[in-house]
Simulated scan of single mutants.
Amino acid sequence: MTDNVPDSTPGFAQDTASVREATDRLLVDVGKLDDEAIGEPSLLPDWTRGHLLAHVARNADALVNLLTWARTGIRTPMYASAEARNADIAEGADRPLAVHLDDLRSSAERFDAAAAALPPTRRQYELEMRNGVLERAARLPFRRLTEVELHRIDLGVGYGIEQLPTAFVDAALAFLTGKKFAGHVDVPAVELRTPDGRRWRTGRTEHTGRVTEDAGDVPYLVVSGAPAELVGWLTGRAKGTGLDTRGGPLPALPPL
């Protein structure tokens, strides 16, 4: 693991600030609910809003564990185990709204403090996230931002993909087509295109058997549309009805 090298990754401080701002917006939305609404289904299968909020809070603490690992060099896993993670979410789901709000605020403060305590020379430290995924400490604020933004959508309180901040959408497209889905055996070879001319390629590298007319000899299925629509489809938060594949169906994608 990389240790004590200068931070060459831009955006750590900005992403941390964006996490604070996104969390404040989430708290405003959650504060409009009541105890009954907390027990209603979220947009995620089998989870109430209470499950979702408990997960968001515990994710903050899990990322604090990783930031502490990066700072000290002492291995601290995100969660004690998958079973412990699931148990914490289930146990916290049925709490009153006021308790959820306090938990969201206090866990967010712990994350912010842990990020502020990480020296720039430790930001390139490589860590093992849940499910064995490797990530640099420099990317943890963006990982947290993704959790907050996407799960705000999942609450089903009127926040949609079209309201995602532009800077987040652009960063999410780079992340999803790069680290998340590039070379993924369960993701077809696709080229994403936006109206402003930007393009991203991701998924498998072999020929899909479906190439749009304007793709020439490129062995990729071309999917075109607005950046937020692409992020919605890639993350499973939208069906992609506004995307263009020249008449063909959108390919299925694995869950995040």
Score class of each variant (00 low, 15 high):
135 E>R: 13
158 G>H: 11
179 K>V: 05
67 L>Q: 14
131 N>I: 00
113 A>F: 04
231 V>H: 04
213 E>V: 02
88 D>T: 09
87 A>C: 03
237 R>W: 00
199 R>W: 01
182 A>S: 12
128 E>G: 14
10 P>Q: 09
251 P>A: 06
236 G>S: 02
249 P>R: 11
50 G>L: 09
192 L>M: 01
94 D>S: 10
17 A>S: 11
31 G>M: 08
7 D>H: 14
4 N>F: 05
215 A>C: 01
222 V>S: 12
249 P>K: 03
241 T>C: 04
79 Y>P: 01
35 D>Y: 12
213 E>I: 04
10 P>I: 02
5 V>E: 11
205 T>R: 09
23 T>L: 09
90 A>I: 07
52 L>I: 06
169 V>W: 09
120 P>W: 09
185 V>R: 15
86 N>L: 05
126 E>H: 07
102 D>R: 15
5 V>G: 06
149 E>F: 06
95 R>A: 15
1 M>A: 14
201 R>L: 07
197 G>W: 00
125 Y>E: 10
73 G>F: 10
235 T>Y: 02
173 L>G: 14
131 N>T: 01
72 T>E: 07
76 T>V: 11
227 P>M: 01
46 D>L: 08
126 E>K: 14
20 R>Y: 02
148 V>L: 11
119 P>V: 10
61 D>T: 14
120 P>I: 01
196 D>Q: 13
109 E>Q: 15
54 A>K: 12
46 D>S: 14
8 S>N: 14
100 H>W: 10
127 L>M: 02
122 R>D: 04
39 G>A: 10
18 S>R: 15
27 L>C: 12
111 F>D: 11
137 A>G: 07
84 A>D: 03
230 L>W: 01
117 A>F: 04
191 E>C: 05
195 P>E: 07
69 W>Q: 09
25 R>F: 03
125 Y>G: 04
171 A>Q: 12
22 A>R: 11
83 E>W: 03
199 R>V: 08
112 D>V: 06
94 D>E: 11
126 E>M: 14
241 T>K: 15
25 R>C: 01
23 T>G: 09
187 V>K: 07
167 A>L: 00
131 N>C: 00
133 V>K: 11
148 V>W: 06
198 R>P: 00
115 A>T: 05
159 Y>A: 13
46 D>Q: 14
167 A>I: 01
73 G>N: 06
105 R>M: 05
85 R>D: 02
125 Y>N: 10
215 A>V: 03
170 D>T: 07
204 R>S: 07
127 L>F: 04
114 A>S: 12
55 H>V: 04
234 L>Q: 05
215 A>M: 13
63 L>C: 10
199 R>H: 08
69 W>N: 12
42 S>R: 07
47 W>I: 08
230 L>M: 00
17 A>K: 04
165 P>I: 10
223 V>W: 00
210 R>V: 10
248 G>N: 05
26 L>Y: 11
140 L>H: 02
167 A>F: 01
164 L>N: 05
129 M>L: 05
190 V>G: 03
66 L>K: 15
19 V>G: 08
84 A>L: 00
2 T>W: 09
192 L>A: 02
29 D>L: 13
126 E>G: 12
135 E>D: 05
213 E>F: 01
143 R>A: 13
96 P>T: 13
247 G>R: 08
196 D>L: 08
78 M>A: 06
51 H>K: 12
155 L>W: 06
176 L>Y: 09
2 T>K: 14
44 L>E: 07
155 L>G: 03
